[in-house]
Simulated scan of single mutants.
Amino acid sequence: MASDYNVAELVPHSGRMSLLTNILDYGDGWLSAEVEIKKDSMFSDEFGVPSWVGLEYLAQAIGAYAGLQERLHGGAPKLGFLIGTRKYTSTQEYFSVGSILTIKVIKNLQAENGLSAFDCVLHSSDNCEATARLNVFQPKNAEEFLKGAKNE
């Protein structure tokens, strides 16, 4: 199903920290998004954007998926946390300026306590591929969760 939502409606990041360009498509348990690498993209240097930033692109796509689920059930996007990754690999060290990254995140596991695991793939128009499995946590109330973490 083509997306009726834009990034700002699904991801709680704002300003320059909102790294996704478009939400392309979604379905049962998955979402695809796009990032356009520009000269003034966050984290860009003379070579482009370092491929390790792909991990954040993947995490924000998962955030968009979670925000979509909230919107589809009448809610608003909530804050979530990247808690770990397995085997993040990229075939290149940089995403080139002018390249378009297509990201697909697929829900692999979702527990009642807010923990989830996603398989993620990123393809770029300049033949780079990055993959990872990301573990994320979305508490019911992020403010209470953060307060509790401060007090410990």
Rank of each mutant, 00 (worst) to 15 (best):
G98Y: 04
D126V: 13
D4R: 07
T85S: 11
V136Q: 01
L19E: 00
P77I: 06
V136F: 04
V35N: 00
A117D: 08
Q138G: 02
S124F: 06
R86H: 03
E46C: 11
T85W: 12
K39C: 13
V35R: 02
G29A: 12
G63D: 00
S96R: 15
G75D: 08
Q138W: 05
N141S: 11
V53K: 06
E36I: 14
L109F: 15
L55T: 15
L20D: 00
L24K: 00
I106F: 13
E112N: 07
Y94P: 03
I100P: 02
T131Y: 07
C128D: 13
L79D: 15
K38G: 13
E129I: 11
S41L: 02
S99A: 15
V35A: 00
E112G: 07
N108C: 09
N141G: 11
F137Q: 10
I62G: 01
K39H: 07
K78V: 11
H13N: 07
E70K: 05
T91W: 14
E143S: 12
I62W: 00
K104N: 08
E112R: 14
K87M: 13
I83W: 11
I106N: 15
S32F: 09
I100W: 02
F95C: 02
A132C: 08
L58I: 14
D45M: 01
L10G: 02
T91N: 04
N108K: 10
T85E: 13
A132D: 04
V121Y: 04
N108E: 15
S96H: 09
I106K: 03
